[in-house]
């Protein structure tokens, strides 16, 4: 089984978000980038399935410029076998999906795993675009993934419950908790990651279909109104008469 795991390079979850003065770009100054937290589920589950199925391989894929390589190396240290970086600044989700689909087709991958969504652009859309570009099923978001031969059994979250879905490879799944316990690199992993192959390939495909015109921060909160604990019932009156939400 050939697993392809797509990882996005995103600002650390504690980042204070700010933009360039023209509000057209995210301000990267001083920001630490990490592997998108959801993608860690995809990566670890792929490695677990590889370990359970002799002869399998895990390739990580990122669409990004050279500054994403530390996180690609981190994925290799966690246990992926090799990596591909499509050398381009991602423009929009469709552009990224085209790159992933092209790599997947070229390499004949059986299982394409990604995170539920990126925590920066929150698109939750690359999964379906890749599946449609390749004409294969997508399961999003998946909470569980088991494989028996080329048949996968997945749990897909739906509002209020879950569906048990069976698909045969090739397919795309976008992963979320509680699929597995994401692994962190160990010393041996970090050492071996240095010499694992990382291939850089050029971008393909059409122009983006969306453009960010401007970013904005949410309006500031007024500040908290405190109610005395002894008089807690007062809060309920304020919620009805002042905030008008109940």
């Amino acid at each position: 089984m050939k697993f392809l795991v797509c990882i996005s390079n995103v600002p650390d979850t504690t980042t204070k978000i700010s933009f360039t003065p023209d509000n057209k770009e995210f301000n990267k100054a001083g920001v630490q980038f990490v592997i998108n937290p959801w993608d860690e589920y995809a990566l670890t589950r792929a490695i677990e399935l590889k370990e359970a199925n002799a002869g399998s391989t895990v390739t990580v894929l990122n669409v990004g410029e050279a500054d994403t390589e530390p996180n690609i190396r981190k994925a290799l240290a966690i246990g992926a076998d090799d990596a591909i970086r499509v050398n381009a600044a991602p423009q929009d989700a469709f552009f990224v999906a085209e790159q992933i689909a092209a790599v997947a087709k070229d390499g004949g991958y059986d299982v394409i795993l990604m995170g539920k969504e990126s925590i920066d652009y929150n698109g939750f859309q690359v999964h379906g675009m890749v599946g449609e570009l390749l004409g294969i099923p997508t399961v999003a978001p998946a909470m569980k993934l088991d494989m028996a031969g080329t048949t996968a059994t997945l749990e897909r979250e739906i509002e209020g419950g879950k569906e048990i879905v069976e698909v045969s490879a090739p397919f795309v799944a976008s992963c979320q908790q509680p699929m597995c316990e994401p692994r962190i690199p160990n010393m041996r992993g970090i050492m071996t990651a240095r010499t694992k192959p990382l291939k850089v390939v050029p971008a393909v495909g059409d122009a983006a279909r969306t453009q960010v015109a401007e970013f904005a921060l949410p309006p500031k909160k007024q500040g908290v109104k405190l109610i005395d604990a002894a008089n807690a019932g007062e809060l309920i009156k304020l919620l009805r008469n002042e905030a008008k939400v109940i």
């Binding site: 970013f215 921060l217 949410p218």
Partner: peptide, 9 residues
Amino acid sequence: AFSGKAFSD
């Protein structure tokens, strides 16, 4: 965008 920390047009 940015997990509720921003908006984009």
